[in-house]
Amino acid sequence: MKEFFQDFKDEFILNFVDGNMWKWLVDGLKNTLIITFFSLIIGVVIGIIVASIRSTFDKNREVYRRRGGFFYYFQWCINALANVYLTVIRGTPVVVQLLISYFIIFSSSRNGIGIAIFAFGLNSGAYVAEIFRGGIMAIDHGQFEAGRSLGFNYFQTMMYIIIPQVIKAVLPTLCNEFIVLLKETSVAGYVGIMDLTKAGELIRGRTFSAFMPLIAVALIYLVVVVVLTQLVKILERRLRKNER
């Protein structure tokens, strides 16, 4: 038993204390959180825009067609573009998208974190868009009609009546997307970004001891996810309170 603890302690010192390598993990976690957070913000912005375009077109197709002319074709084109975006992003692996961003689109830049935020944000936007669109479509059509019959235009109805209800409805799914994204960013090491996973890998490469750094990385991810999940639960409870 004593030997076990002694071994454990030695391993710990070797992997984290010597050369202050624990700092790598801290830096890695910081980068992981930065990439995840800003990617999700970009994702939510893109997602709301794309979802609005698609559901606006679906709901107002009849009105637009009746009005005809340039306006209808403009809407049709925008909607088609949104569909292409969704198909391409959801049809290719995120690692490939990241590599394309890094080595082709921004080949002259070496700001890895910025590029990762771009790539993961663009990727997450497609999934968030479908989450939001599902939320918009799930709202009872009578809510639209009630808003419109009071004299609100389409966008006011969306802003004051539909979107607040959609956000409440999709919040759990959206937070789930954040958690998925947090774990997905672990491939950022492919383009040389020192995220949490990469930090663990670097330590392993230095010490030739796999157990400690990798288990530590796993535990850190787990703790962050569990904490986030709890926060979501509290938020959900808050939101639901005013419906009773």
């Binding site: 809510q143 009609e145 009630a146 004299g151 607040p164 209800q165």
Partner: peptide
Amino acid sequence: KNVDINVHRQKMGMVFQHFNLFPH
């Protein structure tokens, strides 16, 4: 189709079978 219907709807109240109150 050139009339802004939103202005005129303000002057026409509507009551629905399923109430359609805003739940939030």
